[in-house]
């Protein structure tokens, strides 16, 4: 009997010995910046906000930051333009191969710095503007030598609705036909979503391609859930400072006979 009581005592003691409470999690708000510089002469825009503790409400108004971007070509101070936007007063000359720095400060938060190198240029070879294409056609562009990957987006405007289809394409590939100079999409299956019926007239749509630097490529990839928690590219803060070279081509998409037959269940 004494043994049993002793045993129960030991078990009870062990249970009480290490009550496990989740320790208080330290949380320090940090600056959150978002900027995508596009090659060309465009006004630069940086969105600035901060991180929030769980239970705290998000505020889209964030006026007290000081933001600047600089490269070997000079420094541009961005001015507050409402909500969380800071915009340059004029166009900023962003050229491929340039290295750009971003500096954002706030009286109550850590200063953040980030850097991006603008990818090398490239050109869409096929389709050409105004071409009529189907899902079986290839898409080809010259390879940007410094881009981490490409962000391909298809936009279709139908009545009042705008729909998109996005794809990320890495610049390195396991493809046995890897060409160091060209990127080739063997068939544009993504056009299935916008392709009209076979007897209908071709539909207009625009194919957009961005060659992305490493920062923005990883940032978009992270949003797809592949990298998750460590896709932020900013030290002492969150967000991204990336760059892109943009190309687009307006085309017409025609229906594909095989696809339509299958949709009707015939062969």
């Amino acid at each position: 009997m004494r043994n049993k009581a002793g045993l129960l005592f030991i078990v009870a003691l062990l249970f009480l010995a290490a009550c496990e409470l989740t320790p208080e999690q330290p949380f320090t708000p940090k600056l959150v910046v978002h900027c995508l510089l596009r090659a060309g002469e465009n006004p630069a825009r940086v969105r600035v906000n901060r991180s929030y503790r769980l239970g705290e409400k998000y505020d889209s108004i964030f006026p007290l930051a000081r933001v600047s971007i600089s490269s070997g070509r000079g420094e541009w101070r961005l001015t507050y333009a409402g909500a969380d936007s800071y915009i340059s007063t004029g166009p900023v000359p962003v050229q491929t191969g340039d290295s750009w720095l971003l500096l954002a400060t706030h009286p109550e938060l850590d200063t953040v710095r980030a850097r991006t190198i603008i990818p090398q240029p490239y050109e869409i070879l096929f389709p050409r503007p105004g071409d009529t294409v189907s899902v079986r056609d290839s898409m080809v562009w010259t390879r940007s030598q410094t881009a981490k990957g490409y962000y391909l987006s298809l936009r279709r405007v139908r009545d009042l609705d705008t729909s998109y289809l996005d794809a990320l394409i890495p610049n390195d590939s396991f493809d046995i036909t890897y060409d160091p100079l060209l990127v080739r999409i063997p068939a544009m299956f993504f056009l299935l979503l916008v392709a009209p019926l076979p007897d209908s007239p071709p539909r207009p749509c625009t194919l957009w391609v961005w060659a992305l630097d490493t920062n923005y490529y990883d940032w978009v990839l992270g949003a797809s859930g592949f990298r998750g928690k460590d896709s932020s590219q900013i030290l002492r803060g969150f967000g991204v400072f990336g760059s892109a070279v943009e190309r687009w081509v307006p085309v017409f998409v025609r229906g594909d006979t095989t696809t339509i037959q299958n949709r009707n269940g015939r062969r």
Binding site: Q25, P26, F27, P29, K30, V32, H34, L36, R47, N49, R50, S51, Y52, R53, L54, E56, Y58, D84, Y151, L152, S153, R155, T162, Y164, D166, T206, W208, V209, W210, W219, V220, A223, F238, G239, A244, E246, W248
Partner: peptide
């Protein structure tokens, strides 16, 4: 989770 922040994604042509 400890907190959250807005994540902006820009899309080509959108």
């Amino acid at each position: 989770l400890a907190g959250y922040y807005p994540r902006v994604i820009e899309r080509p042509g959108g």
